[in-house]
Design a protein around this nucleic acid. Sequence first.
DNA 1: AATGAATGAGCCTTCATTCAT
DNA 2: GATGAATGAAGGCTCATTCAT
Lengths: 215, 215, 215, 215
Amino acid sequence: MGSSQKKITDKTRQKQRDALIAALQCFTEHGFEATTIEMIRDASGMSVGSLYHHFGNKEKIASALFREGMRGYARIVKQYATDLMANSPEPGLEQGIKMLVYANVDWISGNPDWARFVFHHRFTVTQSGDEGAFRGDISDFRKMLSSWARFMGVAEFDSLDINFVSSLITGPTHNYARQWLAGRVKTPLSEHREAFAEAAWAAVQGVLIKGSSTS
Amino acid sequence: MGSSQKKITDKTRQKQRDALIAALQCFTEHGFEATTIEMIRDASGMSVGSLYHHFGNKEKIASALFREGMRGYARIVKQYATDLMANSPEPGLEQGIKMLVYANVDWISGNPDWARFVFHHRFTVTQSGDEGAFRGDISDFRKMLSSWARFMGVAEFDSLDINFVSSLITGPTHNYARQWLAGRVKTPLSEHREAFAEAAWAAVQGVLIKGSSTS
Amino acid sequence: MGSSQKKITDKTRQKQRDALIAALQCFTEHGFEATTIEMIRDASGMSVGSLYHHFGNKEKIASALFREGMRGYARIVKQYATDLMANSPEPGLEQGIKMLVYANVDWISGNPDWARFVFHHRFTVTQSGDEGAFRGDISDFRKMLSSWARFMGVAEFDSLDINFVSSLITGPTHNYARQWLAGRVKTPLSEHREAFAEAAWAAVQGVLIKGSSTS
Amino acid sequence: MGSSQKKITDKTRQKQRDALIAALQCFTEHGFEATTIEMIRDASGMSVGSLYHHFGNKEKIASALFREGMRGYARIVKQYATDLMANSPEPGLEQGIKMLVYANVDWISGNPDWARFVFHHRFTVTQSGDEGAFRGDISDFRKMLSSWARFMGVAEFDSLDINFVSSLITGPTHNYARQWLAGRVKTPLSEHREAFAEAAWAAVQGVLIKGSSTS
DNA sequence: AATGAATGAGCCTTCATTCAT
DNA sequence: GATGAATGAAGGCTCATTCAT
């Protein structure tokens, strides 16, 4: 806990954080490929050398950004889950699913740049091998979801493809969000917050009911 | 109608079509940015000069590809709609919505490369101003959907954001499709064909019922 | 004199002439290097193939243009010389020199595009080996000038470098013309017509007088 | 004022200067358009990247060269003017004009490559907006010339177009120089040094005398 | 840790020219 | 004579990355 050492580290961390924000703005404005290191340098105030010293290369900047974005997303979901538990002693599957939709809508609406980046670069970053860090986060949610379902007594849930169920819940929201984030639709995502929640719950119900007999 | 003249045109058109297929393969394999003109040249057998003679530049190749892809998509939807009309004299909204899901699942499953390209380049191409050609097609679907709803007596449908409804219907499918096309999930999209159709119908119902009282 | 054959030739010649005018406009607007065959094609209405069929290559188009320009220039000088002879039975060196300046000023003022082209492409065309055609014209003027001087009894004239004397006479005019043709000065060349004539005569006198004792 | 910092700057400046000389040689040998960046790279020993790092693009290299050339020209004129002032306490207009011709002849003769480049690229560079740097120099000369004339009591001088007068003085010299620099005449410009000076003075006189009554 | 000059492989695009029809 | 699709060499320029200071 040498204070002088600590201070430098904090300063450094802050600089890195600033650089990431600057990079995010560049990526938001020009896209990943069209963003040059020089742009990030100008936006961040760091030198090219420092950027490389801290992040390694361009791809790693995106990786760091992606992780940071996912962390923010994870935070809100955990928060919402915690709140749900706190406020309603015995939350049902419906409330859990709606909570997930709320978390998605709220995070996307509140962090459009992060959301846009995360949506567009999932594939890219996945390839870079640096995803290990948040892999855990994602599977956490999935585990949470399925354990929730099991807890709720929805046995069929487990037999379903978790990716399929995720698509049911967040698919419409993300689909609309993409268009909104790209400026192709004007009505804010948040205006459909309740409707997407209802739809998600209805969709899951529809599949659970039918699914029990068909698949 | 000189046959010799016609032949040249046909040959030319075929060459352009071949070049597009070659370009699609390149884009599929490496992505748009990482694909070089030389790759397309090698894959298509055309010369660099010819590629530029016919398409103008790399972006326009993607545009042409995008239009071609959308045309294929339009074709299948129209076909399914026609078939539905033919087979069921008085199709309900449920059948219409499910038909849309089937068309999407089937086209994506049957044309994964086209689908992948269309999903990833919607934004890019939209910016290029060359989208006029299929704009009509898309609005056709939307018109069809809303006229259908009106015909079914679902008055609330019209008051809803069409983009929102579209997200409800195709959102889960597209969301899952993206992951499948990226190789992130293994279970083929087609295995959830029926389930996505059920979910779409359930979601729309859920919103229509709740929506009539809330919004 | 087969009339059908002749007609075709005339038509052809006219087309070539039109193409040259079109090319001149392109060169004027974009410069020789920046002008593409396609530009000339669009401006002339001829096809690329025809352009090559008639002129051989881009350089030859410039050559033809250069010759055509020089021919026009030659025409006006000959005309002015003829007129001078006709109107003044015994023209002196002063009148001859002023006549040359008038001819230059008038041709440049009346044919700015041709003049601009000729000024800028003298070097280029000279290199192409196609200049033989007008070499004769230029030396004609020089011969005329020196025979004139001899006729006038100005013996020293012959001992002078003909290029040097030419620079004395047309140098200021051409120098100003370049700037005017480039749009760097606004006052038209023609406004200095008389002054340049006076200056040329004065310059030649100054050199002849001093020159007789010095060099 | 750290010496190490200074050294870097000097080294850098020297490299840039060397690169410009190399570029000048290329332009002299092949012309601006025909000179490729690779040629300049080979001639200068710098990498392509460095060339762009320092100059921005090919055009800017020419701009820098043009400015450098004009600076050299400005230097010699100022030197000659200073010398004239020093040696002859009350220089007349004649000496001033002849001095200008001497300066031109001497600079062109002593720096044929720079002169050739400056003559051929005046227009191009003028367009690029980078000319501000030497604009001042040029107008300095003109101011000097006109203040000189005023000082000499040649009132008519001021009423004359300064561009016109400049053409009178340097027109023949530049006209001849162009041909000499292009290799179209063999007799060196310097051999006509005195004659061009005499001619300039005679031309100005001729116009001033006649001009006072005519215009 | 920070800096920014230097590097050079590689890309998109142009365009004069050819040639089959 | 006319046409315009096809060609491919060549060029300007970018930009991620390195490294000496």
